[in-house]
């Protein structure tokens, strides 16, 4: 579904990601793992064309045979609006503080698939309910909710739009252990029931072991190893991967 080929990213002349290549197969959960600063999040930013000003990306990233790094802004926003949904790390800052949640959730979900506000409320109330959120939050502002609640709101939108590719950029780092577990279950469910392809960025090996089918290990801006989770855990080839796996036990 997504094939990244020799992706390099430079920010103000400094190379952050260096010639990384990996593949995200359809209907599976792929995980990119690496310590902070290894270029995981920057890779995602490059794929979505949301790199900060002053940065350049080179290489190719094919999504359905379209090179995400070469297409026009218009095509990019069409893909971002209909095919891919991204859950970001910092849920507390993911929403506009001065707009009510209901309106923002609609923009993130119903509006994308051209549902009316009435349809949106009908469907979203159920989803929120399943996630243990009351529909009263629609009338609240983001700063009145906790990080965990906001992250669940984001997930609610992902469940609503059923994207073909769900990118989750360290989605659990702001959640407590209990919520983390719930979140992982949600991801698994989404993948199994709806067949959603998931790209999960994390630094947590336990999560990788639990949900991912494939893993991509990044270290200092380079992809050092790619493979099936079971195989890599069994027989790591790269020295850094070995060290990483050892640190787990």
């Amino acid at each position: 579904m997504l094939k990244v080929n020799q992706l390099s990213i430079e920010i103000n002349g400094k190379r952050i990601v260096d010639g990384s290549s990996f593949f995200v197969p359809r209907g599976r959960i792929t995980s990119i793992i690496g310590e902070s600063g290894s270029g995981k999040s920057m890779t995602i930013s490059a794929l979505l064309n949301i790199l900060p000003a002053g940065s350049k990306a080179a290489g190719q990233a094919f999504f359905d045979n379209k090179d995400l790094l070469a297409i026009s802004n218009k095509e990019m926003s069409a893909i971002r609006g209909s095919q891919i949904f991204t859950v970001f790390q910092d849920a507390l800052n993911s929403f506009n503080p001065s707009v009510k949640m209901g309106k923002q959730l609609y923009e993130f979900s119903g509006r994308r698939i051209r549902h009316s506000v009435a349809e949106f409320h009908l469907k979203m109330d159920d989803i929120l309910n399943d996630l243990g959120l009351s529909k009263a939050i629609m009338e609240q502002y983001p700063f009145e909710l906790s990080g965990g609640m906001l992250q669940r709101c984001m997930i609610a939108c992902a469940l609503y739009v059923r994207p073909r590719l769900l990118i989750a950029d360290e989605p659990t780092s702001a959640l407590d252990t209990l919520l983390q577990k719930e979140f992982i279950e949600l991801l698994k469910g989404l993948n199994e029931k709806q067949g959603t392809t998931i790209l999960l960025i994390t630094h947590d090996l336990d999560i990788v072991a639990e949900v991912a089918d494939k893993m991509v290990i990044m270290h200092k801006g380079k992809v050092v190893e790619v493979g099936n989770v079971a195989e890599v855990f069994e027989r790591p080839k790269n020295a850094y991967t070995k060290r990483l796996l050892e640190s787990r036990f």
Partner: peptide, 11 residues
């Protein structure tokens, strides 16, 4: 941050 998030998700 929220602007990036919104843009990435096709708002």
């Amino acid at each position: 941050y929220y602007v990036t998030v919104a843009r990435a998700n096709g708002v």
